[in-house]
Design a protein around this nucleic acid. Sequence first.
DNA 1: GTTGCGACTGAATCGGCATTCATTATGTAG
DNA 2: CTACATAATGAATGCCGATTCAGTCGCAAC
Lengths: 194, 194
Amino acid sequence: MPEPDKHQQIIDAAVRVFARRGYHSARVADIAHEAGIASGTIYLYFETKGDILVTLFREKIGGFVADVRKAIAGEPDALAKLRRLIRLHFQILERDPALAEVIQVELRQGQKFFRGASSAEVGDYFNVIASVLEEGVASGVFRHDLPVKTATRALFGAMDQMATSWVLGKRTYKLADAADALGDMFLLGLAAKP
Amino acid sequence: MPEPDKHQQIIDAAVRVFARRGYHSARVADIAHEAGIASGTIYLYFETKGDILVTLFREKIGGFVADVRKAIAGEPDALAKLRRLIRLHFQILERDPALAEVIQVELRQGQKFFRGASSAEVGDYFNVIASVLEEGVASGVFRHDLPVKTATRALFGAMDQMATSWVLGKRTYKLADAADALGDMFLLGLAAKP
DNA sequence: GTTGCGACTGAATCGGCATTCATTATGTAG
DNA sequence: CTACATAATGAATGCCGATTCAGTCGCAAC
């Protein structure tokens, strides 16, 4: 009867080790060491090394999406929801640097992020974004002819790239401070007002 | 005296094999077979398997940036340059599906794309985008208070995500068709006109 | 104190594939 | 035709670390 505790212990250790060494050069023995257990024990809780990675981001991204969903549900209109979503996206990553490193850099290994095992979770997030945009179109705060799919991808891509740049840089500036600038850009555009 | 020809032959074979199998499950022997040579011959032209990947995207991305630079130089103002850049970004990827697969999916392995060996080339591309935005700010077609760095990242991220979505989907729709929609979004924003 | 049982351990195994290099082919010059 | 140089070959090597599993531990029941 594997302790549910140890599962979490291994996941947390894996986040730290993957952040430090990268997925490929991380050895299973390293994760075990970081978790304070023997390497064989890992295999009582996970099938393979890849399974650790897959499970880790399913759980983390699943939690991420749930947090965002809950937060925006409390906002009054699409505009507030959009701004809140952007801010939260950044806050969550900023809060946990090791997790941010893993999500922005390591999880993109091969197919795993957008294809493969966590595509469902990522798809959920896309749906959350799309639903906010649709609500805004329906209520008239966004352009009635907004191409929602395109806008969803563009917004996600923009946030994701800002997060990646922040991780790869020294993380000197506050990521969350960029949230409002990004929100303004999307809402108002780059063009000068006539 | 290695033939300069064979270098290219190997790179081209590698693009096809990486696109098909993914970098990790691609064997050096597969690339050799695809190129019609023996596996040992690869090592007369490249140090390691990783070197093939690194060289491949240095050359490809370098060419990509050069193409974009040249194309926008011919455009009259920042607005036209921006639209041209977006269109070209998509056209180049659409023209070569195997290369698109490799750039969007395989090259993100670990650190290689934004960190590591090709960061200089990617940095060049960021500079091209930023210079267009700066020109637009200076000439007054873009908001004078536009945060150029943020906008550069956001625009790159948006294009990159659209490309990734297109690669992961069945590539059914025309990627280039989304270019104008994306341009409009960035220039005008999501918000409804008052 | 002995038996049983699940959790845990970590040294030994094993397979896969990048890399090497002794050998062969191709080409050129005298 | 012989001698030398350079390019190409592909079978054999060697490494590395994920995975396994025979054995140990801790504990509860009787």
